[in-house]
Nucleic acid binder design. Structure first.
Length: 370
DNA sequence: AAGTCGGGGTG
DNA sequence: CACCCAGACTT
């Protein structure tokens, strides 16, 4: 029963229609311009949704434009080399999305005649497409009446319905999806979904929502109870672990030593300088770790040089301090396995390979130095 | 149900 | 620093 969990105020059809009308009027005045809102091409809409998963609009915008220029159609994407796709994804993070996108493009060409499916079930069968993305593509591209729940709409719906329990987890998600479904119009679902999301992004913000600018406070249980800052209930925060890692730029006659990240590793499929956890404190101990780890990962023997730079960055729940050393090769030979290949790469070719952001920073640094 | 996966922007 | 971002997938 879709309305079982819905707040009392939203059980009345007239109430829901009034809410939608106010929301759409507000959206008409305040909607932002975005690259993917200028097209109805299902391929581009799907691409934008994958790109926007856990990624800000500001970050995705420029990447989207460049990506579409490189792969204008699903056929272009399906025919592309995965390395090219990863290269275009560089800097966006969650690189599994790029691999899934590429795999899904092949499925769409092979099984759907190059057309994005219209129905939620078929969309969800594609790699990287969950219930949110399926609903987004179906409603935005085809105006199918499918609900969406992502971080914005989840927050808006929790507040509208005055849902005080934990929203992450089975019961909470059921409630939110039921509310999304209950409010969904039978026509114009795409615009309505966009409007609800936009309200969450611009007005119904995580902290200190601008209720004075909100078009639907009359329908909002959280506003009525003064609970806007208590709803939705925040998830337990994950604790961050500090990690120290080392990476080495090994040079040999104008080339540098790279290895490709193996399946199951972080940054799978992308290229990186030899990189590993660093345990030792003293310079001699570190020096030994560099020699041993480079040898183990690549088969190459090195003579470590000075510290080139230190980069601090975060990867999900890890806070990483990365020490980057220079070194020169003294012997050994590259060993590539099935899972991970190793190669000596000319500096001029670094621009063609997909690198992690840290590896790209180092590549830029050593390329400028010459 | 909990862990994993990136990286950058904001207060 | 803490928190947040058009989530999906694996264990």
């Amino acid at each position: 029963m879709a309305t079982d969990c819905t707040a009392e105020t939203l059980k009345d059809p007239k109430e829901r229609q009034s809410l939608r009308r106010r929301l759409l009027a507000w959206f008409g005045k305040h909607k932002r311009d975005m690259p993917w809102r200028r097209t109805r091409d299902p391929y581009q809409i799907w691409l934008s949704e994958i790109m926007l998963q856990q990624t800000t609009v500001a970050m995705a915008g420029p990447k989207f434009t460049v990506f579409v220029a490189a792969f204008p159609t699903v056929h272009d994407l399906a025919a592309a080399d995965e390395q090219q796709v990863l290269r275009m994804w560089e800097g966006l993070g969650y690189y599994r999305r790029a691999r899934g996108l590429h795999a899904a493009a092949k499925v769409i060409v092979a099984e759907h005649d190059g057309q994005l499916p219209r129905d939620v079930k078929s969309l969800m069968a594609l790699p990287g497409v969950g219930r949110y993305t399926a609903g987004a593509v179906a409603s935005f591209a085809y105006d199918v009446s499918a609900p969406i729940v992502e971080t914005n709409t989840q927050r808006v719906l929790a507040r509208l319905t005055g849902y005080r329990d934990e929203v992450v987890g089975g019961a909470g998600q059921r409630h939110i999806w039921n509310a999304a479904e209950a409010l969904l119009p039978t026509t114009g679902a795409g615009t309505y979904n966009l409007a609800l999301m936009e309200l969450g992004a611009l007005v119904c913000k995580p902290s200190d929502p601008r209720c004075d600018e909100c078009p639907v406070t009359a329908h909002c249980a959280a506003f009525a109870g003064g609970l806007q800052n208590e709803i939705p209930k925040l998830a337990a925060k994950v604790k961050v672990t500090a990690v120290r890692e080392g990476t080495v730029v090994v040079r040999k006659s104008g080339r540098v030593l790279l290895r490709q990240r193996a399946k199951g590793e972080r940054w799978e499929g992308m290229w990186d300088f030899p990189r590993f956890a660093l345990d030792g404190e003293g310079p001699l101990f570190v020096r030994r770790e560099l020699v041993d780890n480079v040898r183990e990962q690549t088969g190459v023997d090195i003579e470590p040089g000075p510290l080139l730079t230190t980069i601090k960055h975060g990867v999900t729940r890890y806070r990483i301090t990365l020490e980057c050393y220079e070194a020169r090769a003294t012997g050994g030979r590259v060993k590539s396995t099935d899972e991970s290949s190793v190669r000596w790469t000319p500096l001029a070719e670094l621009g063609d390979l997909p690198l992690s952001v840290t590896a790209r920073k180092i590549a830029t640094l050593i390329t400028k130095q010459g």
